[in-house]
């Protein structure tokens, strides 16, 4: 069987520094894979390459067996590869509803209709309401996104990516800056998502990673140093060193 997404010796350097170094990564149709590693290990860079934000220096990326290396972002999104950002990236002056509606519209089409109203895209509106209710954002729907509390903006960040009905979703530190309660809330959301689609999670909270991941990949200096189940990673000597080394 073909993996949903895999990379072959993916590399990217920034002025001689290998931020991503010969990474071979693969995920199946659903479940939760976490990518961990110290700060600067190249986790965000890896997501940036796979989602088309930056180019690869060398190596290949395959999605459902088709090569997608260096394809433009919007095409990758249309194929079903979505992501969130480590630092919130939302449409600040648009309402929460419009933030999600535009993502849905981009997925379903109809953006070239210039003389009809937004309401004329009925399924887009309906599906957006579904998502709004599912995420409990109903009371906030009409509010400008910039007026939301940080935690709610973080949820919106994930929601925008979900609105595009991805087959694989990269989450770059979704719990960054969140309270323990908010973290629990969003981890529940992530677990639920992983039952339906493939989720790749970058996360610093080790307890969270160990408890919800199906598989874990560990990066250090751009290289994969370990790969396996949470149990295997917990007992991996090299990983311990990498993390203990950091704590010194």
């Amino acid at each position: 069987m073909v993996e949903l997404l895999c990379t072959e010796n993916l590399c990217r350097s920034f002025g001689g520094v290998m931020a991503t170094n010969r990474v071979c990564f693969s995920v199946d149709n659903q479940g939760l894979t976490s990518i961990i590693g110290p700060n600067g290990a190249g986790k965000t860079t890896f997501i940036n390459i796979v989602t088309g934000k930056i180019g690869a220096s060398s190596g290949k990326i395959f999605f459902k067996g088709k090569e997608i290396t260096n394809k433009p972002t919007h095409e990758l999104v249309k194929m079903g590869i979505c992501r969130t950002f480590q630092i919130n990236s939302i449409f600040e002056n648009l309402s929460v509803f419009e933030n999600l509606r535009i993502a849905r519209q981009a997925k379903d089409g109809g953006s070239l209709r210039i003389f009809s109203s937004k309401q004329s895209l009925k399924t887009v509106t309906e599906k957006t309401w579904d998502l709004v209710e599912r995420l409990g954002l109903k009371d906030l729907a009409a509010r400008p996104a910039k007026n939301l509390a940080y935690g709610d903006q973080r949820v919106l960040e994930v929601a925008i990516a979900m609105a595009g009905d991805p087959e694989i979703l990269f989450l770059d530190e979704p719990t960054a800056g969140m309270s323990p309660t908010e973290t629990r809330q969003i981890s529940k959301l992530i677990k639920g998502l992983a039952n339906e689609i493939c989720v790749v999670l970058v996360e610093h909270d080790m307890d969270l990673v160990m408890s919800i991941s199906d598989r874990i990949t560990v990066l250090q200096y751009g290289c994969t140093i370990a790969e396996g189940t949470p149990e295997e990673i917990r007992n991996n000597e090299q990983v311990r060193e990498a993390y203990l080394g950091k704590e010194e």
Partner: peptide, 30 residues
């Protein structure tokens, strides 16, 4: 006509691009 265009799905795409070009491409907008 312009008012109509601005309030259309097409106009919504333009607004999204104005707000956040980067995110617009990450919801699948060319």
């Amino acid at each position: 006509l312009t008012r109509r265009i601005i309030n259309s799905p097409f106009g919504a795409v333009l607004e999204a691009i104005r707000e956040n070009e980067d995110r617009a491409s990450f919801v699948g907008i060319n």
